[in-house]
Amino acid sequence: MTIREKLLGMLPKGRHAVIGVPFFWMLLFFLLPFAIIIKISFAEADIAIPPYTSLTEWADSQLTVLLNFGNYVLLSEDQLYIAAYLGSLKIALISTVLCLLVGYPMAYAIARSSKQMQPVWLLLIMMPTWTALLIRVYAWMGILSNNGLLNNALLWLGVINEPLQILNTNIAVYIGIVYAYLPFMVLPLYANLVKHDLSLLEAASDLGAKGYTAFWKITVPLSKSGVIAGCMLVFIPVVGEFVIPELLGGPETLMIGKVLWQEFFNNRDWPVAASLAVIMLLILIIPIILFNRNQAGEMEGKA
């Protein structure tokens, strides 16, 4: 064996190379940035470029590693951070439920429509996402403001006498989030519902379970993995949402994205901002693990 062959032999082949690519991707774009965030979270804020201290110091042949846990201590000392995490989780939870309530019937209707119409409906669901999110949120500001479309229409119809204060309240935040994240709920649900074997419903019907009962006993349990996938895709990004609450929300909208912004920009404290982000990720990992378990269970069930 020549050296060249030996070296070539060390490279991963076939199957391993194929599996290696996504792993490498995860390492580069998820694990590495997260490691940097963790590193910053143990540093101290400083007036420098970049504005935090270095964790390690090499002097007199000695390597000193200085970990500062003060940032995490700070987070536990002030009720604000806990309130902000809870605020984010509450908004994410309610938005996810609302998305599911609106999205499920939509996905169901699309999955049961004719084969020719399905791509049209799906296109209509996805079309709004072709415009930048920021512009769509600004459009909502125009619709919801005191002299906006909605209030003017209601005033004209005589439903209300005074404009409703919707913009800059949590109601506006829910409207904006449900609107923006609905496609992420509908698409996985549709992908699941369209695969259902309709003969199961026929069999149920033969056995006396009509419409409503069959839906709850057959369709809903079968679509469980679609519901979970949709809920994850909505819940996780909404927890860290910044743009929508910032533009549509009011002073009482307390979410972790805003607090993170304040730490990073107003207080110039990158380490505290980083530790906030680390804790947020830890909170989110729990539902992700549950999801993975469910997926694994499903795979086994099929095998």
């Binding site: 002030d78 009720q79 604000l80 309130a83 002073p251 009482e252 909208t253 307390l254 607090v259 304040q262 107003n266 207080n267 404290d269």
Partner: peptide, 14 residues
Amino acid sequence: RVMTRSWTKIKSGK
């Protein structure tokens, strides 16, 4: 930091 914290309290009551 004290000012930012005060501000959040003033604005959101928290």
